[in-house]
Simulated scan of single mutants.
Amino acid sequence: MKTLEEILTVTRSIAWGATDILRSYYRGDNKQNLEVNYKQNEPVTVADTATNNYIVEQLQTAFGSEDFGYISEETYQKQAANSKELVWIIDPLDGTRDFINKTGEYAIHIALVKDKRPILAVVAQPETEKLFYAIKGKGSFVEVRSVTGDNSTEALNVSTRDSLDDLTLVVSRSHRNEKLNHLLKNLPCKNQKVVGSIGGKIAAIVEQKADIYISISGKSAPKDWDLAAPELILSEAGGSFTHFDGTNLSYNTGDINQWGGLIASNGKCHQMLCEEAEKILGQLS
């Protein structure tokens, strides 16, 4: 079995390859028709499928299927939790609507999960040529690709802002519901920054451009592949990502949906935010 550091080296290379595939579709270099279909009311394009196939095939070639299981947005079918000790959780295109609408704010998520918790993560932002990565207990880093091939890498740390009034919320253009709108309206932090894709939102927090991201499920909920990689990137940069009651997120449980209220933050006011969110939402009941 390879070490996590060796596995990460391979995974980063795969993520850069997936970045090039998505950029070729995004910039129109790929001549295939980018026809949009819908699966459970969410858009899917040929770019999602092509990138997914590349990532899964490359991971399976590198690591096989004897020790590793695979859960991917584009191939997942309802099933019991994967029985493998180590499970890859993959989102080949996080932010498909942003990809289609050409905002540039889409991402690639690849996470390795053990005992329902992420231990290795990569989040790539193709349009910024940035690759965020982490191993549990080893910190978070961002690699920026250069046209000269001389990539730069730096360690990531969340902001030290510790007053609710000073914190900036990163929010979606879509994926809103009545509860979330009520909560955002009543929280003390009024600064907001709009960013597409969950990977992009967490990247904004670890790059100190924002401090909080909140999700509340309605008819649907974020999925394992939306959160597993970004969560580890954030926590290894010093932030927190939990349910409103402070409990950890769990992955590969047999239910891919992450129901309820979730808060990602720089960690400085995390417990206070959780308590405030539950109090504000309690006013609706």
Score class of each variant (00 low, 15 high):
123 V>Q: 01
53 N>Q: 10
154 E>M: 15
150 D>H: 13
158 V>P: 03
91 D>N: 12
75 T>G: 06
131 L>N: 04
104 G>D: 02
116 K>H: 12
84 K>L: 00
173 R>F: 09
104 G>A: 02
126 P>A: 01
97 R>L: 10
56 V>Y: 09
107 A>E: 04
86 L>E: 15
64 G>C: 11
172 S>Y: 09
106 Y>E: 05
73 E>D: 08
101 N>K: 13
77 Q>G: 05
91 D>P: 09
150 D>A: 08
119 I>W: 10
63 F>P: 02
135 I>R: 08
86 L>C: 09
74 E>K: 07
62 A>W: 01
89 I>D: 00
176 R>F: 07
107 A>S: 12
156 L>W: 00
137 G>V: 07
151 N>M: 02
131 L>R: 10
82 N>K: 10
166 D>S: 13
108 I>H: 01
129 E>A: 06
145 R>G: 05
63 F>A: 03
140 S>P: 01
81 A>H: 02
112 L>D: 02
125 Q>T: 15
165 D>Q: 12
157 N>K: 11
158 V>I: 04
86 L>R: 07
108 I>D: 01
146 S>I: 07
111 A>K: 03
112 L>M: 06
116 K>L: 14
125 Q>R: 13
83 S>C: 06
161 R>W: 13
151 N>Q: 05
91 D>L: 08
128 T>H: 10
106 Y>M: 06
52 N>C: 12
109 H>I: 02
69 G>P: 00
122 V>D: 03
144 V>S: 14
71 I>L: 00
105 E>D: 05
160 T>R: 12
149 G>F: 00
67 D>H: 11
69 G>N: 02
130 K>L: 14
85 E>W: 05
79 Q>R: 07
66 E>Q: 07
163 S>D: 06
107 A>F: 04
139 G>R: 03
114 K>Q: 09
77 Q>A: 06
66 E>P: 01
177 N>W: 07
107 A>L: 03
157 N>M: 07
161 R>M: 14
178 E>K: 13
174 S>C: 13
115 D>R: 08
106 Y>T: 02
58 Q>M: 14
94 D>T: 00
167 L>Q: 02
150 D>W: 06
150 D>L: 08
142 V>R: 02
121 A>L: 10
101 N>W: 10
71 I>V: 11
79 Q>P: 07
157 N>F: 06
119 I>Q: 09
134 A>S: 11
145 R>Y: 15
134 A>K: 03
165 D>P: 12
171 V>A: 06
104 G>V: 00
136 K>G: 12
115 D>Y: 14
78 K>N: 09
110 I>A: 04
96 T>V: 03
162 D>Y: 04
168 T>W: 06
165 D>K: 12
130 K>I: 13
138 K>N: 13
54 Y>G: 06
178 E>Q: 15
169 L>A: 06
154 E>N: 10
139 G>Q: 05
160 T>P: 03
178 E>H: 12
61 T>D: 15
154 E>A: 11
172 S>I: 07
60 Q>G: 09
130 K>N: 14
133 Y>L: 13
144 V>C: 15
140 S>K: 04
76 Y>P: 00
126 P>W: 00
87 V>N: 03
113 V>W: 01
114 K>L: 08
116 K>Q: 14
163 S>C: 09
162 D>K: 11
147 V>Q: 15
163 S>H: 08
179 K>G: 00
88 W>N: 02
138 K>F: 08
53 N>V: 05
153 T>S: 11
141 F>V: 03
163 S>V: 13
127 E>G: 04
164 L>H: 07
57 E>H: 12
